[in-house]
Protein backbone atom coordinates (compact mmCIF):
# COMPACT_ATOMS: atom_id res chain seq x y z
CA UNK A 1 0.00 0.00 0.00
CA UNK A 2 1.25 3.47 -0.90
CA UNK A 3 0.63 6.90 0.59
CA UNK A 4 -2.03 9.13 -0.95
CA UNK A 5 0.80 11.38 -2.04
CA UNK A 6 2.54 8.57 -3.93
CA UNK A 7 -0.77 7.65 -5.51
CA UNK A 8 -1.33 11.30 -6.48
CA UNK A 9 -4.74 11.01 -4.82
CA UNK A 10 -6.79 14.25 -4.97
CA UNK A 11 -7.01 14.30 -1.16
CA UNK A 12 -3.23 14.33 -0.90
CA UNK A 13 -3.56 18.03 -1.74
CA UNK A 14 -4.55 20.11 1.27
CA UNK A 15 -6.63 22.55 -0.77
CA UNK A 16 -8.85 19.62 -1.73
CA UNK A 17 -9.16 18.49 1.88
CA UNK A 18 -9.95 21.99 3.05
CA UNK A 19 -12.54 22.42 0.31
CA UNK A 20 -14.33 19.38 1.76
CA UNK A 21 -13.85 20.49 5.35
CA UNK A 22 -15.12 24.01 4.66
CA UNK A 23 -18.58 22.64 3.89
CA UNK A 24 -21.07 23.07 6.75
CA UNK A 25 -22.66 19.89 8.10
CA UNK A 26 -26.45 20.27 7.90
CA UNK A 27 -25.83 24.01 7.92
CA UNK A 28 -23.70 23.84 11.07
CA UNK A 29 -20.08 24.88 11.51
CA UNK A 30 -17.60 24.28 14.32
CA UNK A 31 -17.04 28.01 14.52
CA UNK A 32 -20.77 28.48 15.07
CA UNK A 33 -20.82 26.03 17.97
CA UNK A 34 -17.88 27.85 19.61
CA UNK A 35 -19.65 31.18 19.13
CA UNK A 36 -22.69 29.88 21.00
CA UNK A 37 -20.38 29.05 23.90
CA UNK A 38 -18.54 32.38 23.67
CA UNK A 39 -15.39 30.38 22.94
CA UNK A 40 -14.75 31.92 19.53
CA UNK A 41 -12.11 32.92 18.67
CA UNK A 42 -10.56 29.94 20.40
CA UNK A 43 -7.56 31.02 22.45
CA UNK A 44 -4.80 29.04 24.14
CA UNK A 45 -4.80 28.72 27.91
CA UNK A 46 -1.15 27.72 28.25
CA UNK A 47 1.68 26.06 26.32
CA UNK A 48 2.47 22.94 28.32
CA UNK A 49 2.99 20.49 25.48
CA UNK A 50 5.42 20.69 22.60
CA UNK A 51 4.38 18.02 20.13
CA UNK A 52 7.14 17.45 17.62
CA UNK A 53 6.47 15.58 14.41
CA UNK A 54 9.85 14.10 13.53
CA UNK A 55 8.83 13.09 10.05
CA UNK A 56 6.35 11.35 7.82
CA UNK A 57 8.52 8.30 7.25
CA UNK A 58 6.95 5.16 8.70
CA UNK A 59 7.29 1.40 8.35
CA UNK A 60 3.48 1.08 8.27
CA UNK A 61 0.77 2.45 5.99
CA UNK A 62 -2.31 2.56 8.23
CA UNK A 63 -5.63 3.10 6.50
CA UNK A 64 -6.71 5.85 8.87
CA UNK A 65 -3.42 7.78 9.08
CA UNK A 66 -3.99 11.53 9.17
CA UNK A 67 -0.30 12.09 8.38
CA UNK A 68 -0.41 10.00 5.20
CA UNK A 69 2.80 8.47 6.52
CA UNK A 70 4.59 5.48 5.05
CA UNK A 71 7.86 4.09 3.75
CA UNK A 72 7.55 6.24 0.64
CA UNK A 73 7.47 9.49 2.64
CA UNK A 74 10.95 10.95 2.95
CA UNK A 75 10.14 14.18 4.81
CA UNK A 76 11.98 14.00 8.14
CA UNK A 77 13.20 16.58 10.64
CA UNK A 78 16.83 17.67 10.32
CA UNK A 79 19.26 17.95 13.23
CA UNK A 80 19.32 21.71 12.64
CA UNK A 81 15.55 21.94 13.24
CA UNK A 82 15.93 19.74 16.31
CA UNK A 83 18.55 22.21 17.59
CA UNK A 84 15.92 24.95 17.34
CA UNK A 85 13.49 22.75 19.29
CA UNK A 86 16.16 22.23 21.96
CA UNK A 87 16.62 25.99 22.26
CA UNK A 88 12.89 26.38 22.97
CA UNK A 89 12.97 23.54 25.51
CA UNK A 90 16.01 25.14 27.16
CA UNK A 91 14.52 28.63 27.43
CA UNK A 92 10.86 27.90 28.18
CA UNK A 93 8.94 25.80 30.66
CA UNK A 94 7.59 22.95 28.60
CA UNK A 95 6.04 20.23 30.75
CA UNK A 96 5.67 17.58 28.06
CA UNK A 97 7.66 16.90 24.91
CA UNK A 98 5.58 14.63 22.71
CA UNK A 99 7.47 12.98 19.83
CA UNK A 100 5.41 11.69 16.98
CA UNK A 101 5.61 10.93 13.26
CA UNK A 102 5.42 8.74 11.10
CA UNK A 103 7.63 6.50 13.13
CA UNK A 104 9.85 8.97 15.00
CA UNK A 105 12.37 6.21 15.71
CA UNK A 106 13.19 6.05 11.98
CA UNK A 107 14.68 9.54 12.10
CA UNK A 108 18.47 8.92 12.29
CA UNK A 109 18.80 11.68 14.92
CA UNK A 110 16.00 10.34 17.12
CA UNK A 111 18.23 8.98 19.89
CA UNK A 112 20.55 11.97 19.79
CA UNK A 113 17.54 14.27 20.14
CA UNK A 114 16.21 12.46 23.19
CA UNK A 115 19.64 12.43 24.84
CA UNK A 116 19.90 16.18 24.27
CA UNK A 117 16.43 16.80 25.69
CA UNK A 118 17.28 14.79 28.80
CA UNK A 119 20.55 16.75 29.15
CA UNK A 120 18.43 19.90 29.34
CA UNK A 121 15.60 18.64 31.52
CA UNK A 122 15.25 15.71 33.86
CA UNK A 123 11.73 16.68 34.88
CA UNK A 124 9.83 17.20 31.63
CA UNK A 125 7.83 14.23 30.47
CA UNK A 126 9.01 12.85 27.14
CA UNK A 127 6.40 10.89 25.21
CA UNK A 128 7.25 8.75 22.21
CA UNK A 129 4.32 7.72 20.03
CA UNK A 130 5.68 4.34 19.06
CA UNK A 131 3.80 2.23 16.52
CA UNK A 132 5.20 -0.94 18.23
CA UNK A 133 6.11 -2.79 15.03
CA UNK A 134 9.17 -0.57 14.57
CA UNK A 135 10.69 -2.27 17.61
CA UNK A 136 10.74 -5.62 15.79
CA UNK A 137 11.22 -4.24 12.26
CA UNK A 138 15.01 -4.42 12.25
CA UNK A 139 17.71 -5.58 14.72
CA UNK A 140 18.89 -1.98 15.07
CA UNK A 141 15.61 -1.21 16.84
CA UNK A 142 15.53 -4.22 19.16
CA UNK A 143 17.08 -2.26 22.01
CA UNK A 144 14.50 0.55 21.86
CA UNK A 145 12.74 -0.66 25.03
CA UNK A 146 16.04 -0.37 26.94
CA UNK A 147 16.72 3.02 25.40
CA UNK A 148 13.24 4.23 26.36
CA UNK A 149 13.75 2.94 29.89
CA UNK A 150 17.14 4.64 30.27
CA UNK A 151 15.62 8.02 29.40
CA UNK A 152 12.32 7.48 31.25
CA UNK A 153 10.25 7.85 28.10
CA UNK A 154 6.49 7.47 28.29
CA UNK A 155 5.53 5.10 25.51
CA UNK A 156 2.18 5.63 23.82
CA UNK A 157 1.27 3.01 21.25
CA UNK A 158 -1.66 2.40 18.96
CA UNK A 159 -3.44 -0.89 19.19
CA UNK A 160 -6.90 -0.47 17.73
CA UNK A 161 -8.21 -3.78 18.99
CA UNK A 162 -7.28 -6.86 20.96
CA UNK A 163 -7.63 -9.15 17.95
CA UNK A 164 -5.61 -9.61 14.77
CA UNK A 165 -8.53 -9.22 12.38
CA UNK A 166 -9.46 -5.67 13.34
CA UNK A 167 -5.92 -4.50 14.03
CA UNK A 168 -4.55 -5.81 10.75
CA UNK A 169 -7.54 -4.43 8.83
CA UNK A 170 -6.57 -0.94 9.95
CA UNK A 171 -2.80 -1.11 10.32
CA UNK A 172 -1.69 -3.78 7.84
CA UNK A 173 -1.25 -7.52 7.53
CA UNK A 174 0.67 -9.04 10.43
CA UNK A 175 0.73 -5.87 12.51
CA UNK A 176 -1.13 -7.39 15.46
CA UNK A 177 1.32 -10.26 15.89
CA UNK A 178 4.32 -7.93 15.66
CA UNK A 179 2.68 -5.49 18.07
CA UNK A 180 2.21 -8.26 20.62
CA UNK A 181 5.89 -9.21 20.30
CA UNK A 182 6.89 -5.57 20.80
CA UNK A 183 4.59 -5.26 23.81
CA UNK A 184 6.20 -8.37 25.31
CA UNK A 185 9.61 -6.71 24.86
CA UNK A 186 8.37 -3.52 26.51
CA UNK A 187 6.83 -5.49 29.39
CA UNK A 188 10.07 -7.43 29.78
CA UNK A 189 12.01 -4.28 30.71
CA UNK A 190 9.22 -3.12 33.02
CA UNK A 191 6.98 -0.98 30.80
CA UNK A 192 3.37 -1.15 31.92
CA UNK A 193 4.30 -3.23 34.96
CA UNK A 194 2.82 -2.01 38.24
CA UNK A 195 5.19 0.13 40.36
CA UNK A 196 7.93 0.09 37.71
CA UNK A 197 7.53 3.80 37.05
CA UNK A 198 7.67 3.03 33.33
CA UNK A 199 4.51 4.11 31.58
CA UNK A 200 3.05 2.23 28.65
CA UNK A 201 -0.24 3.60 27.40
CA UNK A 202 -2.20 2.19 24.50
CA UNK A 203 -4.35 4.07 22.02
CA UNK A 204 -7.65 2.76 20.75
CA UNK A 205 -9.18 4.32 17.70
CA UNK A 206 -12.12 2.80 15.85
CA UNK A 207 -11.44 0.59 12.85
CA UNK A 208 -14.20 2.14 10.77
CA UNK A 209 -16.74 4.92 10.53
CA UNK A 210 -17.88 4.99 14.14
CA UNK A 211 -16.93 6.74 17.35
CA UNK A 212 -15.05 5.31 20.31
CA UNK A 213 -17.13 4.21 23.27
CA UNK A 214 -16.39 4.70 26.95
CA UNK A 215 -12.65 4.92 27.57
CA UNK A 216 -13.02 3.32 30.98
CA UNK A 217 -15.01 0.35 29.73
CA UNK A 218 -12.77 -0.22 26.70
CA UNK A 219 -9.72 -0.06 28.95
CA UNK A 220 -11.18 -2.79 31.15
CA UNK A 221 -11.84 -4.96 28.09
CA UNK A 222 -8.36 -4.40 26.67
CA UNK A 223 -6.68 -5.14 30.00
CA UNK A 224 -8.57 -8.40 30.42
CA UNK A 225 -8.18 -9.60 26.82
CA UNK A 226 -4.49 -8.71 26.53
CA UNK A 227 -3.67 -10.19 29.93
CA UNK A 228 -5.68 -13.39 29.43
CA UNK A 229 -4.70 -13.91 25.81
CA UNK A 230 -1.10 -12.78 25.71
CA UNK A 231 0.08 -11.94 29.23
CA UNK A 232 0.45 -8.27 28.24
CA UNK A 233 0.06 -5.47 30.78
CA UNK A 234 -0.18 -1.73 30.25
CA UNK A 235 -1.11 1.38 32.22
CA UNK A 236 -3.98 3.18 30.50
CA UNK A 237 -5.97 3.10 27.30
CA UNK A 238 -6.59 6.36 25.45
CA UNK A 239 -9.62 6.43 23.19
CA UNK A 240 -9.09 8.69 20.20
CA UNK A 241 -11.69 9.70 17.64
CA UNK A 242 -10.60 9.49 14.02
CA UNK A 243 -10.57 12.94 12.48
CA UNK A 244 -11.71 13.38 8.88
CA UNK A 245 -8.28 14.20 7.46
CA UNK A 246 -6.06 12.61 4.83
CA UNK A 247 -6.41 8.81 4.56
CA UNK A 248 -9.32 8.61 6.98
CA UNK A 249 -11.12 11.30 4.99
CA UNK A 250 -10.37 9.36 1.81
CA UNK A 251 -11.78 6.22 3.45
CA UNK A 252 -14.94 8.04 4.59
CA UNK A 253 -15.55 9.45 1.14
CA UNK A 254 -14.80 6.31 -0.85
CA UNK A 255 -16.94 4.16 1.46
CA UNK A 256 -19.89 6.58 1.35
CA UNK A 257 -19.67 7.23 5.09
CA UNK A 258 -18.53 10.86 5.09
CA UNK A 259 -21.88 12.60 5.58
CA UNK A 260 -23.14 10.22 8.25
CA UNK A 261 -19.85 10.37 10.12
CA UNK A 262 -19.79 14.16 10.12
CA UNK A 263 -23.43 14.29 11.24
CA UNK A 264 -22.55 11.92 14.05
CA UNK A 265 -19.62 14.08 15.14
CA UNK A 266 -21.80 17.20 15.08
CA UNK A 267 -24.70 15.62 16.95
CA UNK A 268 -22.27 14.34 19.60
CA UNK A 269 -20.78 17.83 20.20
CA UNK A 270 -19.87 18.19 23.86
CA UNK A 271 -19.42 21.77 25.13
CA UNK A 272 -17.22 20.59 28.00
CA UNK A 273 -14.91 18.80 25.56
CA UNK A 274 -14.76 22.01 23.53
CA UNK A 275 -13.36 23.83 26.54
CA UNK A 276 -10.70 21.15 27.01
CA UNK A 277 -9.42 20.71 23.46
CA UNK A 278 -5.70 19.98 23.48
CA UNK A 279 -4.79 22.75 21.03
CA UNK A 280 -5.37 25.18 23.90
CA UNK A 281 -2.29 23.84 25.67
CA UNK A 282 -0.15 22.54 22.79
CA UNK A 283 2.13 23.74 20.05
CA UNK A 284 2.75 21.30 17.24
CA UNK A 285 6.05 21.44 15.36
CA UNK A 286 6.21 20.12 11.82
CA UNK A 287 9.11 18.12 10.40
CA UNK A 288 10.31 21.31 8.70
CA UNK A 289 10.05 23.42 11.87
CA UNK A 290 6.83 25.27 11.16
CA UNK A 291 4.39 25.69 14.05
CA UNK A 292 0.76 24.63 14.19
CA UNK A 293 -2.11 24.50 16.68
CA UNK A 294 -2.20 20.69 16.53
CA UNK A 295 -0.96 17.75 14.49
CA UNK A 296 -4.17 17.83 12.45
CA UNK A 297 -3.82 21.49 11.50
CA UNK A 298 -0.22 20.64 10.68
CA UNK A 299 -1.33 18.09 8.13
CA UNK A 300 -3.72 20.67 6.67
CA UNK A 301 -0.77 23.11 6.54
CA UNK A 302 -2.67 25.66 8.63
CA UNK A 303 0.20 27.46 10.36
CA UNK A 304 -0.32 29.27 13.67
CA UNK A 305 -1.74 32.76 13.31
CA UNK A 306 1.17 34.30 15.26
CA UNK A 307 2.69 36.33 12.39
CA UNK A 308 6.29 36.49 13.64
CA UNK A 309 6.35 33.10 15.29
CA UNK A 310 5.46 30.62 12.60
CA UNK A 311 8.70 28.67 12.77
CA UNK A 312 10.45 27.07 15.73
CA UNK A 313 13.55 29.23 15.14
CA UNK A 314 11.38 32.34 15.59
CA UNK A 315 9.57 31.12 18.76
CA UNK A 316 7.80 34.00 20.46
CA UNK A 317 5.86 32.91 23.52
CA UNK A 318 3.87 36.10 23.81
CA UNK A 319 2.59 35.90 20.25
CA UNK A 320 1.85 32.20 20.57
CA UNK A 321 -0.13 32.78 23.76
CA UNK A 322 -2.15 35.52 22.12
CA UNK A 323 -2.85 33.71 18.86
CA UNK A 324 -6.25 32.63 17.63
CA UNK A 325 -6.45 28.88 17.09
CA UNK A 326 -7.57 27.94 13.59
CA UNK A 327 -10.72 25.81 13.59
CA UNK A 328 -12.51 23.98 10.81
CA UNK A 329 -15.03 21.16 10.55
CA UNK A 330 -12.45 18.48 11.43
CA UNK A 331 -12.36 19.98 14.93
CA UNK A 332 -15.73 18.32 15.62
CA UNK A 333 -13.66 15.14 16.02
CA UNK A 334 -12.07 16.50 19.19
CA UNK A 335 -15.37 17.58 20.75
CA UNK A 336 -17.59 14.57 20.09
CA UNK A 337 -18.82 12.47 22.99
CA UNK A 338 -16.27 12.35 25.77
CA UNK A 339 -13.87 14.44 23.70
CA UNK A 340 -10.66 13.33 22.07
CA UNK A 341 -7.03 14.30 22.30
CA UNK A 342 -3.63 12.71 21.97
CA UNK A 343 -4.11 11.82 25.65
CA UNK A 344 -7.52 10.23 25.04
CA UNK A 345 -10.92 11.43 26.28
CA UNK A 346 -10.98 14.98 27.66
CA UNK A 347 -14.06 14.90 29.89
Amino acid sequence: MKSLKALNHPLSRVEQEIAVLDQPVEGKTFEGFLQEQALFPLKPTTIDILQINMGKMCNQVCKHCHVDAGPDRKEIMTRETMQHCLEVIRKHTIKTIDLTGGAPEMNPDFRWFIEEIRAITQTAAIIVRCNLTIIVANPKYYDLPEFFKKHRIEVVSSLPYFSAVKTDAQRGEGVFGKSIRALEMLNAVGYGVADSGLTLNLVYNPSGAFLPGSQQELEQQFKKKLADGYGIVFNALFTITNLPISRYLAYLMSSGNYENYMEKLVSAYNPVAAMNVMCRSTISVGWDGFLYDCDFNQMLELKVTAPDSQHIKDWNSEQLHQREIIVKQHCFGCTAGSGSSCGGATT
Binding site: S163, V165, K166, P206, F210, P212, G213, S214, E217, L218
Partner: peptide, 9 residues
Protein backbone atom coordinates in the same frame (compact mmCIF):
# COMPACT_ATOMS: atom_id res chain seq x y z
CA UNK B 1 -23.00 0.94 15.39
CA UNK B 2 -23.52 1.23 19.13
CA UNK B 3 -22.13 -2.27 19.78
CA UNK B 4 -19.05 -1.52 17.69
CA UNK B 5 -18.53 1.76 19.50
CA UNK B 6 -18.64 -0.11 22.76
CA UNK B 7 -15.85 -2.40 21.61
CA UNK B 8 -17.83 -5.49 20.57
CA UNK B 9 -16.45 -7.50 17.68
Amino acid sequence: VDSMEKGCD
